[in-house]
Design a binder for these strands. Structure first.
Lengths: 339, 339
DNA sequence: CTGAAAGCGCTTACAG
DNA sequence: CTGAAAGCGCTTACAG
């Protein structure tokens, strides 16, 4: 690899001049600029980002860190795509790590990001309190929370309105005549799950339907849990006629279980799933499920722009961005009857 | 952020001793070790990876670069998961970039990886020749090709046996009695597409079925192309009774188009799709498609291990790993008749 | 076993 | 406009 010294000796100038030619061409004679540029081209020289970033105390690394549970979850894949597109456009590079909701792995990865001196970190927080996050904060590395909020640390956050999303879903079911609506969702320690349940309950209350604890099931977000909880819910003495599944994985578990039990959707049980599937894949499912679609790609974009703006202006007060989800009505609830 | 100097002054030793305590504890008195460790703990000190990597000519950055077309494609998501899992286990961090098959973006990203001095790069090559790749090679940065091969540069490569995969699919269709089998695949500039077409043709030949150019359609890998080519194929005077779709996106396009045209699967047209869907999502489709499943996660794992071993031993001759795909028989071809 | 010093490849005041 | 020099935070021969 050619180095600054190689270029400078080839061009017959000092390394400082080469550096200036690259970083502030206007500060250099056209003549010099030309000589240096020729040497750079001849050698295929590119400044080492590694060396460059060591230089200044607050030298930018132009690297952003992203920590997610699992890139194989289409929700996070879409999120990451949004993040990376904005990052790449702005000359930033992405470090990605999967941590499977494991606090130990998460801490380890956040620690790595700190020692990498990344310019910022984007991630969906698991718990309310987190030592590693605090550490990043103290190291002056800005953090943007996506999808979920922290309840302690004040930082930029981009979420969708989960309460509104779940409310829309449940209201839709109520308007179709359902009164016994089950909720199968993720753990309440995650803010998004907590809020979706809240939206579920609010919708019921607003329509004067009592909340029946028997109809509320929560578990770790997985297809398997979706199955288990569906079985549990359909086995009670007075089972629900409609279900809200709290996320994409659980929705698939619910659908698979209902199919196994030969319970037809929407005739015997109506279903709304939280989170849409990519590629319009929902349209190919049997039946195409009505879902609450989050603007996931946009969450990624907004979060990244927020992060970049904070890198520019570290003292700006924390911003909360709340995007609106959309109810995609398909075939899993039967036909839609307007109120 | 605490620095080596902070620790050394707090512990009352030189920075060299602190460095040794961290990197080679046995070279230091237990007494010293203890003092230094106490200072490290008190300050929450972690060595800067940025500074560390600048030190040695061939200093490891412990970063791997991964460049893919699109993380939203479940195939690449699974691949990346395999890569990241092995990387993380071995203390490596991942830089990820999406380039959408765009040679310009790809070159730009590879260039960035070079200036980041990553320890190695994993990616599915698009074209046969690539200047940026050569550059990485010359910069001593090892490259592992996944999913597709380069025809010029000799480097470690992990692929699946695409010829065998397509052969299995087409043989399956032939055994079910089909003679007019259409092929809808990706561009032949991509080695995997080329090989799948080759497998398709080989299977026909081995069964004495003439190859009909009218039944072969190729286009850029997308759902939209899948649609267009399906229409084209079903509009010819003597349309196929079975189809092989060359990848997951095109398979979805084919299914959607057949559904639109009210052509039933498998009764009117049998279908095998290349690439499986994650989460057993295929089982939820209508109908569940028979697919050629690649061990995608394993491709990622093997590629990463290959890369790590090459970092250890740069002179080792290039290795080609060929994994075997598997035909997952589901409902889109009708019942399976053994020969 | 420990410390002083050089050096990794850059950038940026500071002189001239 | 240009160059000499300091310094970013480490690691590692080289002495002692």
């Amino acid at each position: 690899m050619a180095t600054l010294l190689d270029v400078s000796s080839k061009a017959g100038v000092s390394i400082a001049t080469v550096s200036r030619t690259i970083n502030k061409p206007s500060s250099v004679t056209p003549m010099t600029r030309h000589k240096v540029q020729a040497a750079i081209d001849a050698l295929g020289y590119r400044p080492s980002r590694v060396a460059r970033r060591l230089r200044v105390e607050h030298g930018s690394t132009h690297i952003l860190g992203v920590i997610i549970p699992d890139i194989q979850n289409p929700f996070f894949a879409e999120l990451v795509r949004g993040i990376e597109d904005v990052a790449q456009t702005n000359g930033y590079t992405l470090i990605l790590a999967n941590v499977d909701e494991d606090p130990v792995r998460q801490s380890r990865c956040l620690e790595t990001l700190r020692t990498e001196s990344v310019d910022g970190v984007i991630f969906p927080p698991v718990t309310g309190e987190n030592a590693s996050i605090r550490m990043l904060h103290e190291a002056g590395i800005p953090v943007v929370c996506v999808d979920r909020r922290m309840d302690t640390l004040e930082c930029d956050t981009v979420v969708t309105d989960n309460i509104a999303g779940a409310k829309k879903a449940v209201t839709h079911l109520i308007q179709l005549g359902h009164r016994r609506i089950g909720y199968i969702g993720g753990m309440p320690i995650v803010s998004s799950s907590r809020e979706r349940r809240m939206g579920y309950e609010t919708a019921l209350q607003e329509h004067g339907i009592p909340i029946d604890p028997d109809l509320i099931c929560e578990g770790t977000r997985s297809k398997e849990q979706g199955r288990t909880l569906t079985h549990a819910l359909m086995d009670i003495s007075h089972p629900p006629t409609a279900l809200l599944a709290g996320n994409n994985l659980m929705t698939l578990g619910v659908m698979a279980t209902l199919r196994e039990r030969q319970i037809t959707i929407p005739e015997q049980v109506a279903l709304v799933g939280y989170d849409d599937l990519p590629w319009n894949l929902a349209l190919a499912l049997n039946p195409p499920p009505t879902t609450v679609r989050q603007p996931t790609y946009q969450i990624g974009c907004r979060a990244t722009r927020l992060l970049l703006s904070r890198i520019e202006e570290p003292q700006r007060p924390p911003t909360l961005v709340v995007l609106q989800p959309e109810l995609k009505i398909r075939a899993s609830c039967g036909s839609y009857i307007t109120q």
